[in-house]
Design a protein around this nucleic acid. Structure first.
Lengths: 204, 204, 204, 204
DNA sequence: CATGAATGAGAGTTCATTCAT
DNA sequence: AATGAATGAACTCTCATTCAT
């Protein structure tokens, strides 16, 4: 049968889910195989090794987010709009694929030791995208000089932490019902707040 | 040598180092024991379990950072100065104990599933510290209304990512020597930039 | 050789032997694996855990003895014959599977703490079998009122102890050659003696 | 301080309790030390090894039971009374020191491999005691010929199993409330039933 | 006598990976 | 292409025993 494609996808899909829920090490190939209803040996047949599967998972995910943002930005004109799009698209994507933030943070926090070249490169591409938006803004006289890498981390760091910390914040609220600004803000409001803050620091 | 204190400290010290370098799961107690030149069983003698050791490590670390910041803020007056102190102290601490950022990010990215109560609580306390600075600023008319949790993540997220991504950025520069704004900024400049950005969004 | 059935059987067979010779705790899975010429991990592959393997061993054993007795009794008519069959079959079985008595005694002597439900149930079934024989005897007017549980323990306790203590008694004889009635009786004679004794207490 | 004696006793006492509750292997010296509020190393100071402590425990226990029975029998005259005393004293003792039955059964069921000579000897002495009662009965013409070892096992086996299986029987009753003759008999009734049964087989 | 520190051997268990079919 | 069997190394944890003070 030519279910090869389907099998591969099932594997990837469940790997994504488990890796993001449990982390790389806590997720066993047995888990993935069982969840995918597929023989464990097939994972090796398709992806050579656990690391290989992981690389595939991350690669796919990052490619998706990159091209989604790129596409969204294409038709816009003003740099500040592009910035907004970048933030909102990134956020939307993180919400939609909730496994992404934990995965990214985890990857980054391991010094990129397990991080295969392609992934690293794709993360870099994403940053270059923002960098080009900012540079473009400067050229047009919209933005002043800035430290693009900090802007990048301000956006991604804040968003990732916000998303990732949700369960913790909800727990905290149970203990301290007055927990300030824990859960009452929507992701849109957060995006808007980040956008405004960054704009203030960028605009001439 | 038969010195409990020294043994305990050696264990903790090396655990900190390895946990932050390799992560919880990749670090084996064999590693820690060998590095500490100490019998593996002693880890259980002192800390009951791997999780127990981890809790001790994190607890100790977070307590330190909290009290350091608290102490530093005590003698200051203006809210904006407090904010600056918060950012700089947090940053300095993260630099000094470079294992902290990866540990924090990793913990957060696992939904706090393995996160013992005390740790969780200490992270919360740290946030409350910033929250009180911001609230104080509002009372004094220095700051306008804001979303403290976002400010918190803007500071910690940005700083943590900046520190944690350093090796990656350096690698990137080797491939793309024009890598924009990757390594030429000192942590002080980063802090200052973050501070300014946040101040702009806060000040009336 | 890649034969699941054979592997499983080899494991069970050696587990039975070792568990009954050394007891549950003294028998390590390493021992079983080595004796079976099988990779230790296979034990987990097949039986999930040491306890799981043990359960399998006991379950299999008890099922066998139960159905053997049941079968043997089926075609008999008088209650006293059934009683005799019960005793003799039980004894024969204990002799044939010499690991059984120590296993049973050991299990019982640990308050049934590690005793999985199924095993417990099977031991209970065995008692119910004797109980039904006795009740049947009463109905027919063959037997008088009695305490079936004591009868049960009289049979099984005596037989188990007799079998289990054999090496001890032989040792004793070496020191005290006049050791009374230590070894000169065959199991058949013992059975007969038990049967007669119990019959005397039962018959009207 | 000369608490040596007290310490030794505390250790023995708690060892008895734990060994009989959990069995030899499941009981760790840590457990015994903690329960006794005594430093673990002292156990080695006093008893050389875990096995040594165990030997002491068993030795003490068996000596007690032997001399208690011997004493009780001394003043009696008729063999049948002695038999009764033997059964009842043994039973009473087993009830009083509830750790004894499991210990004995466990020891027997391990082929006496761990069984130190002294213990073995004491168990033998106990049997000789009964044997002498029976022989005495024959001499007086009270009893007919018999197989003393079977009588011995009938008494001890039945009683030990009855006591040891108590928790199991109680559990069984929860599931099958009609559980026949499980719990309604007192130990005195059991003794009496055993006595009568044996007497019937013995009396001329 | 007494204690806490230290040891080393092994226990059960997990898991990525490979092999045979 | 697919499967279940098999492997071996590693992992966390336990424990009897010894050492130093």
């Amino acid at each position: 049968m030519r279910d090869a494609k389907k099998s591969r996808e099932k594997i990837i899909q469940n790997a994504i889910e488990l890796f993001s829920k449990e982390g790389y090490h806590k997720t066993s190939l047995d888990d993935i195989a069982k969840k995918s209803n597929i023989n464990k040996a097939m994972i090796f047949y398709y992806y050579k090794s656990k690391a290989g599967l992981y690389e595939e998972v991350m690669s796919k995910t990052l490619s998706d987010i990159y091209s989604t943002i790129k596409e969204a930005i294409k038709n816009s004109s003003r740099a500040k709009d592009n910035l907004k799009i970048f933030i909102e698209t990134y956020a939307k994507y993180c919400i939609k694929y909730s496994y992404l933030p934990p995965l990214l943070l985890r990857e980054l926090s391991s010094n990129g030791q397990n991080l295969p070249f392609e992934m690293r490169n794709k993360m870099y591409q994403l940053f270059l995208l923002l960098d080009s938006i900012l540079k473009d803004g400067q050229k047009r006289g919209e933005f002043r000089e800035n430290i693009s890498i900090v802007i990048h981390f301000m956006i991604t760091g804040t968003l990732n932490l916000f998303i990732v910390s949700k369960p913790l914040r909800e727990d905290a609220k149970e203990f301290d019902s007055s927990f300030p600004s824990a859960t009452e803000y929507s992701i849109e409001e957060i995006c808007s707040y980040i956008y405004k803050t960054i704009l203030k620091t960028l605009e001439v």
